[in-house]
Design a protein around this nucleic acid. Sequence first.
RNA 1: CGCGGAGUGGAGCAGUUGGUAGCUCGUUGGGCUCAUAACCCAAAGGUCACAGGUUCAAAUCCUGUCUCCGCUACCA
Length: 510
Amino acid sequence: MNQSFYITTPLYYVNDRPHIGSSYTTLIADIIAMYHRMKGEDVFFLTGTDEHGQKVQQAAEKNNLSPAEHCDIYAERFQELWSYFNISNDDFIRTTEARHIRVVQDVMQTLYDRGEIYKDDYEGWYSVADEMFVSEKDHAEGKYRDVRRISETNYYFRMSAYRQRLIDHIREHPGFIRPENRRNEILGFLKQPLKDLCISRPKARLAWGIELPFDEDYVTYVWFDALLNYISAPGYGADEEKFRRYWPAVHMIGKDILTTHCVYWPSMLMAAGIELPEAIFAHGWWTSEGKKMSKSLGNFIDLETIQSHCDHVGKDAYRYFMAKEGPLFSDSDFSKARFYHTYNMDLANDFGNLVNRIFKLIKKYYDGKVPPPGTLQEDEQEMKKAAEAVRDAVMEHLKALDVNAMVSEIIAYVSSVNRYLEQKEPWKLAKSDPDAAGRVLYAGLASLRFSAALLYPVLPEKTAEFFSMLNSGEKPGRIVRWEDLSAGTELGEMKALFPRFDMKRLETND
RNA sequence: CGCGGAGUGGAGCAGUUGGUAGCUCGUUGGGCUCAUAACCCAAAGGUCACAGGUUCAAAUCCUGUCUCCGCUACCA
């Protein structure tokens, strides 16, 4: 049986409107999933929505909807978004689904039976206005209004007991938390004693949640509920074969939810006796035009803005930018100028223009048919070897989940084909030495075909168009051999894959 | 306050067994004209935050200073 690969996005909370940040995690997870499928692996790629909790309940009330109705609207919105971006997720889980609730209650009961959960009173500051508990420090700083001392009885998970085991695991598995700076953050965090985690909410205060199996007066704390999706979706407790096949997962997350994923989640799994995730990768944030995105500044890059960019240069251009320039290891800036500039440089000038010139040369001098390679000479052998080296490098970077490096590697190769052409000048050779010109054009086209095949997860639509132009009967989705470009095939109709974007348009309208 | 990270030519970044600083973009000059005002070549531009120290030799190791940033959890 093929090797399996399981990758997840966080479950998106059905409260905020989707924006660039929501799309980024999903897009890079999608790209990684697609590369693994290209390798022939059996991939399970999961995303979904997190639908419980106080904020959902409040938002629903505000709109005069039941929480369930509210969730339906948002879940659909996310599904439409992923469909718009051609996201290849294999499953979409909603935490309000029965299959999920069953697992949450099952795990909850197991932990309770094992004595991992206990009941206790908590006394602390509570802001009535904001309906939430306030830390000692925040209260001292006067951040919240209407604060009073209250006490509440809740259930607690003995998370503190797992501190040392967690530290050991992180130390013994360097790739468990990535990138390394995040790993250090968590190790730093764990230097202090770990507290137990409050995992319930009294229904009197919050009804919208999964009822505790051992106390009907309480619902499960939303994070405890949500994290379990990673095992409920692949069939934990329901389809053991499927679960064993896919678990453990690689979790792609944003840096904001590092602690929940790297501390709460592994502790929960250890307590339940379940294997820990293979890796947790926390990427950085996008800034917008050089500034931190914030609700108050109102500079969130929302879906409408993204779609208008996609209308100009295609969805693949957006995927490409996310993949190549995205904040994998630190924060990164999304500006219109940078976005369109990158599009022009890499896709229009390098890739698109190169396709165009080679196709035109073949049309002009070879009647539109792929010329025979003849006997490849040293330079062509070099192109072939370089292509294979790029493929290997891309697969290495894939292991590190370094999408930035993967894309850079391929586009640098495409760029080298431009240099190769310039050096060989097939437009001159065509007149003096047609065989040599044919060989060069074959090598150029073979290199482009190889690159296009490798770029498929990043540019699914455009590489499909490329193969259709190539008219070889192939579809992207697998890694090809450089030398398998068959001579004699008549090229299909030509069109500009990536029309240049006129930067002047940025000044005039949008 | 504590812990951690960062400060490299105009911009964004590489650069951990220490040995005369690289990449992409931008800028300037040239070439080519098969191509989407594209492509190719070349040049200019950095005392590698600052001050000390170790060493034959430091962006790279040590010490101190300045600046920026992240984390410090039950409201995900």
